[in-house]
Nucleic acid binder design. Structure first.
Lengths: 192, 192
DNA sequence: ACAATTATTAGACTGAAGTCCACATACCAA
DNA sequence: TTGGTATGTGGACTTCAGTCTAATAATTGT
């Protein structure tokens, strides 16, 4: 399923893909997502515009893949370190994610916006970005519950939605998303 | 501040404004926000395109004003009815908001997306749509706290962010936003 | 060597957003 | 009535996303 037989035919130019992703990342971080055009990325990569369309449907598809490809950015699992409380684990995980986001929060906002205009991109974004982080937090909260650090009548799925929702809500409304928010969230989840 | 002196000059045609808002609402509900062009709205309203730009900067500005103008839609305050628990009040308020949103959730998603591409629209959207609803919930939670229905160590502002965040997160990810979500949110906020 | 197949390229083309302009129109005040 | 001022109208123009096409290039199998 992954490797196609594909005998015959000119092979895709992998250097072109790499150049496009690199150019996209550079231009978006330099000028901001909205101010970079498809044509500009292709030109900077030294490639025809159609070559970009051969691989990605939209600028959002390209930027998403470029941001999350080899590097496991934003993907660090919260570890169950001995001696660290569940609350501290949650706070540390959120603080780490939020710090990374302060680097390119504008791009993430732009990708969320793009997802509202393109159902297939919304699905890809959910699968590659949203759901993994949601599951990390749900897992952490379930572990806290089995350890007795979170009351049995709390709902880990709903709490995870609260946590990520608070983050999206703040980010999309231009409000601060930083270590202070991580602390406040962890405090509210692990009340008492 | 509201009434301008404006002596001299041709007065703005209020019928044109009304026709533009009506046409925008009708077309957006018929075809969906993304599939309606500015030129189409102007044509349906029987006015020149420039007349639309004289009043609003973007389609989002026009649609926001059209949706929230005279009608107090989405604006019903949660009442402190005698005999109704705080939890039931919250659930009823959320269920009402979510029901309205099922009518035009797509448009709200499109407006949130537009806010990510236009800082001045983001500010207007926050002021007219986001903040009022956030404050309604915060007020309700503070009242619950003074009545002893919510523990003193809970943080009403953070909880309100949780609640609205959960709603945004679900909506923007294409997940259900309905009475069931209202129930789950109210249950998680008023634990025990 | 040659045919089949697929990728790349340059360019044309459409549709939409947004800006700009010249001219017509409506209102006010002197 | 006349001049000042601001809006309405139609159209030209630029930029960009997205689609399409014809020609060319690279690879495989015969």
């Amino acid at each position: 399923m992954t490797e196609k037989p594909a005998s015959g035919g000119r092979p895709p130019n992998e250097q072109a893909s790499a150049a496009l992703k690199a150019a996209a990342l550079r231009l978006v971080s330099e000028k901001g997502y909205a101010k970079v055009s498809i044509a500009e990325i292709a030109k900077a990569a030294g490639v025809a515009r159609q070559t970009l369309y051969n691989r990605w449907n939209t600028k959002a598809d390209l930027v998403l893949e470029a941001m999350f490809e080899e590097t496991g950015r934003y993907a660090a699992e919260p570890l169950d370190q001995a001696g660290e409380s569940c609350r501290a684990q949650l706070e540390a995980f959120l603080a780490q994610v939020f710090t990374h986001l302060s680097q390119d929060g504008d791009t993430v906002c732009a990708l969320i916006a793009a997802a509202q205009q393109d159902a297939s991109f919304r699905a890809a974004f959910f699968r590659r970005f949203v759901r993994p982080r949601e599951e990390m937090v749900t897992t952490l909260l379930r572990r806290a519950q089995t350890q007795g650090k979170l009351a049995q009548d709390r709902n880990p799925e709903m709490l995870s939605t609260f946590i990520h929702g608070a983050f999206w809500y703040r980010l999309l409304n231009g409000q601060p998303v930083n270590a202070g928010l991580a602390r406040d969230i962890a405090a509210e989840v692990f009340t008492r």
